[in-house]
């Protein structure tokens, strides 16, 4: 019995990990390419869930509501690029962090004014079907989210390695000045990256809402910070590192809740992060940090 319980928890951990994985990939795009710790991403995650919830409540068809949520997140992300990222170029690297955090506070409070601070019940969209494999119970919604997340990441990884735009992005990540000298239009590429990371975060938010059937204005904070942790554990700037990190953090969280207790979650998750940072600062799959000076 113990064995099947462990297997069940591993399944649950992977499902939660899939959401962290998408967040981690969103952060890794922003950091790896733009060197920008984008604190507005947890807000965009929340927009994914909350805006979809709002439109479904207005009576929109579910798919339209989802599309609207993704569109809103992408638009807001363009605003973040325009007001938080673009004016700060050439200054201290910490500064855009402040304004992106300003966006997080703004988005949370706008939703708070509109929907109130309570948790809202997100409608159950997928019939409550469960697959039973041996002793395991796997929800259809869970399985679908995991598959969708993995597909998205696979596609992104293919896109970055095999297309012309992907090569441009990698060039900018490698060295921005050189990229500009090589004739890469960063003015067009950067907003695209912002949209891409916003969509990843918003999809994660949608999946979270569908799977756990609840949304709130502050749903992004916990998940967002674990996404950051996942990104670092895996290695900043590495997509597969973000995948590995997301799944590890998800597993660590679920396993420590079920076998030790809910209070120790932050110790295991962030302890894992701290140990990795001290032993292997570049993360599990990251390349060694380039030491500019000293």
């Amino acid at each position: 019995m113990r064995g099947s319980m462990l297997a069940q928890q591993i399944v649950n951990g992977l499902m939660l990990g899939a959401i962290y994985m998408l967040m981690a990939v969103a952060f890794t795009l922003a950091i790896g390419v733009l060197n920008f710790l984008n604190f507005s991403l947890p807000g965009l995650f929340m927009l994914g869930g909350m805006v979809a919830y709002g439109f479904i409540k207005f009576g929109w068809p579910t798919l339209f509501a989802f599309a609207a949520a993704l569109a809103v997140a992408a638009l807001v992300s363009l605003l973040v690029e325009r007001f938080a990222y673009r004016p700060m170029q050439g200054g201290d690297p910490e500064v855009p962090l402040v304004s992106s955090l300003g966006f997080l506070v703004l988005l949370e409070n706008l939703m708070l004014i509109y929907f109130g601070s309570d948790q809202q019940a997100f409608p159950a969209l997928v019939p409550d079907l469960n697959l039973r494999l041996g002793g395991l119970v796997i929800g259809i919604a869970q399985l679908g989210s995991l598959a969708l997340s993995v597909l998205l990441v696979l596609w992104l990884s293919w896109f970055l390695s095999s297309t012309s735009t992907g090569r441009c992005i990698r060039t900018v990540a490698e060295n921005r000045d050189t990229a500009v000298l090589m004739g890469i239009d960063t003015g067009r590429l950067v907003p695209m990256l912002f949209i891409a990371s916003a969509l990843l975060a918003a999809v994660a938010g949608l999946l979270f809402a569908v799977n756990y059937q609840q949304v709130s204005p502050f749903m992004g904070e916990g998940v967002g910070f674990k996404g950051v942790a996942a990104m670092i554990v895996g290695g900043m700037g590495s997509i597969w590192g973000a995948v590995l990190g997301g799944l590890l953090i998800g597993l660590a969280e679920v396993l420590s809740i079920s076998f030790i207790g809910a209070d120790v979650v932050n110790i295991t998750v962030y302890g894992l992060l701290l140990v990795i940072l001290i032993l292997r600062p570049q993360g599990l799959l990251g390349r060694p940090a380039t030491r500019e000076k000293l």
């Binding site: 710790l37 910490e94 900043m236 932050n266 302890g271 992060l273 940090a289």
Partner: peptide, 18 residues
């Protein structure tokens, strides 16, 4: 250093309060 240091301190703060 840089962003890695920021993240290490971020993790540290979380671990201490946990």
């Amino acid at each position: 250093h840089g962003i890695y240091l920021a993240m290490a301190t971020f993790a540290l703060g979380q671990v201490i309060s946990a």
